[in-house]
């Protein structure tokens, strides 16, 4: 792979017509973005009540990530700085509403109206100064501050990011915490350079039980505590939960033996009149490999 796109050009220039089309017609990219979005949805941990929510997709691009939101039955608003990417999203007839906007200028939504937000492979772009008027710190501050304000209390934002290095990760997380969010980072496959993915899992509002950073599935021993909510940088808790499920196991999940499959089976058993344990958030969660 060549150098990071973030180092080549500003996003609205890097993602021109040609790149936007290339990006969206690569089956590899489509698959990866879908997986990242599914995982983000999972970490968003919306109430399991079947009610569609109003979600944001920040840096929605051509709509690959938003599609996952639609598939899960939700309404969404996607914003992106690249007109070319949005044009492809139009072509693909995504169900969400689209906006041409720069997250670094702050999100222009009313306070407390959004039920949750995801962002897939986009927020690290804020760490670059693409114009003389750009100060990454001010842009991160504007972004996280406005994100915090528009989310409903207790709502979450899950941002999958590709920070260039440790300093960038800390910069991003630091501004998230200073805006009032509680939470931390969840790392999947931390030992694989290729598959390693990280997600900022942020909860809006006063610290509560629900503000604890979730763990990678089946990795309960890698526990971490919730931020005390002082908003003080010193106090932030960076939670790293190890998630190194072997490849094979993941394949099985993909073939359908995930939660959905288990729920279906349970329903079938119930209809047969069998006694079936109630469905909870633990249903179909992966077990630890050993105790």
């Amino acid at each position: 792979m060549s150098s990071r796109p973030e180092l080549q050009a500003p996003p609205e220039i890097f993602y021109n017509d040609e790149e936007a089309r290339k990006y969206t017609s690569s089956s590899r990219i489509i698959e990866i973005q879908a997986q990242l979005s599914e995982r983000a949805m999972e970490l968003l941990a919306l109430p399991d009540d079947g009610v569609p929510r109003l979600l944001l997709d920040i840096g929605c691009g051509s709509g690959l990530s938003g599609e996952t939101l639609s598939e899960n039955g939700h309404q969404w608003i996607g914003l992106d700085i690249s007109q070319s990417m949005l044009n492809i999203a139009l072509e693909r007839e995504v169900e969400g509403d689209l906006m041409l906007a720069d997250m670094g200028q702050g999100l222009g939504f009313r306070p407390g109206v959004i039920d949750g937000a995801i962002s897939i492979s986009a927020v690290q772009w804020l760490c670059n100064a693409d114009k003389s008027s750009h100060d990454p710190r001010l842009r991160l501050k504007a972004f996280f501050g406005s994100l915090y304000r528009c989310l409903a209390r207790g709502a979450r934002a899950v941002l999958q990011v590709y920070p260039e290095n440790l300093a960038q990760r800390e910069l991003i997380l630091g501004f998230a915490m200073r805006s009032g969010f509680a939470g931390g980072v969840v790392v999947d496959y931390p030992h694989s350079t290729k598959k390693r993915k990280e997600y900022l899992v942020l909860t809006c509002g006063p610290p509560s039980l629900s503000a604890a950073t979730p763990q990678g599935k089946g990795e309960q021993e890698e526990s971490c505590s919730a931020d005390e909510g002082s908003g003080d940088e010193e106090n932030q808790t960076v939670c790293i939960s190890d998630r190194h499920r072997p490849r094979k196991k993941q394949k099985i999940t993909k073939k359908g033996k995930g939660r959905e499959w288990v729920m279906k089976k349970k329903e079938q058993m119930r209809r047969k009149g069998n006694v079936v344990p109630p469905d909870t958030k633990y249903t179909a969660r992966k077990r630890k490999a050993r105790f």
Binding site: N87, L90, L98
Partner: peptide, 14 residues
């Protein structure tokens, strides 16, 4: 345009 509002701010509006 084409259903997409352009909410980009000018530099002096940020």
């Amino acid at each position: 345009n084409k259903g997409i509002p352009n909410m980009l701010l000018h530099e002096d509006e940020v």
